[in-house]
Design a protein around this nucleic acid. Sequence first.
DNA 1: TAGATTGTTAATCGATTAACAATC
DNA 2: TAGATTGTTAATCGATTAACAATC
Lengths: 214, 214
Amino acid sequence: MAKETKISMAVIRRLPKYHRYLGELLRKDIDRISSKELSERIGFTASQIRQDLNCFGDFGQQGYGYNVKDLYDQIGKILGLDKNYKTIIVGAGNIGQAVANYAKFESLGFHLQAIFDKNPKLIGIKIRDIEVKDVDCLDTYLKENPIDIGIICVPKEHAQMVADIMIKNGIKGIWNFAPTDLNAPDDVIVENVHLSESLMILSYRLNESELFKE
Amino acid sequence: MAKETKISMAVIRRLPKYHRYLGELLRKDIDRISSKELSERIGFTASQIRQDLNCFGDFGQQGYGYNVKDLYDQIGKILGLDKNYKTIIVGAGNIGQAVANYAKFESLGFHLQAIFDKNPKLIGIKIRDIEVKDVDCLDTYLKENPIDIGIICVPKEHAQMVADIMIKNGIKGIWNFAPTDLNAPDDVIVENVHLSESLMILSYRLNESELFKE
DNA sequence: TAGATTGTTAATCGATTAACAATC
DNA sequence: TAGATTGTTAATCGATTAACAATC
């Protein structure tokens, strides 16, 4: 199925959007779609859609288009959504709790195993039936329980330290909400969610367009 | 200061990172930096850094480099961080509360004026001394209180409806946390934070690298 | 002045769009 | 079969990198 050439990040970033739109079509009981129709809904050019999908295989059929269910499943597979991942959250503050309670999370195959914090007020409380553990136990916990993905929701000052413990214990991916860049070896994937960067871009665009006058 | 040509999105997306790294240098009392040194820290090429900065003006000095404080301030200004924005949050669930409590928020000039929800259990509670109002009052509230930025933290089913009320009442920017694309006229800036897309990209990269074996 | 480093132009690389033959 | 639409190649467009003259 997969072709040999390396897929560009530009393509990868569009995959979740394809997945989301195809999911919507599926719920609307639409069972086939052409690149042209999809283009009109999703806002990419039809040419780009065909080009993107062809990175991964021949999913379409000339004269017909794409089967929605098939394509949805294929893209889900490409994204690794057919797998299950054991995850932990470190940092049970606002963002940590929001992520823990984020419903879609489980349905995508990410299974929350444990939550850690260093605040005594948070240690022991339950979030989604999971008791918050002392972060001092993180290292020991990881040694006993292999975890795939670590989610970092601690302040930036402690983020690298937490990452180091995760990396040392064989974590494969880090979802980082701390507003800092983490050092990690090439075989550990780091994906950042930098909220303040997103907010700054909103602010920039607001001013650029001269819509905003104080 | 500003040049005439339209700045590409690729450049804009890098601005917050420049701002962050320059802020760190500033805190370390480093007062000058060359594109080469910055390149080593930030991970962009020196050439790209000079190219990027030159979109906005001549901030550097041949033979010297860039003044950290000056450049930090200039980029802050370009990003519109010297302004103040009146904001509201609609949706006081986990993400809404996390955003409301997000400390950096205020320091960047985003001032939270009100929070809305439709859940009777949430209406009336206080978050950061702000009482959660009934979302039914949103339209009236906006008519009486001009707001610059609306933050949408409601489920995707209600996101467009909330956006429409905001747009009708002259909101200029929307920071959208709902996992859906919003329809908005060109003069309303929409910036999305799609957490599940970020998670899917992590998942993709994990599988691509073949690091993940179930 | 000599050395350093920018600003900027030109060269390269990569991503998007257009076009169309292949084929269902 | 005729019409539709893909897969794919070629053309265009844009972004990044390299090079170097300008200049502090």
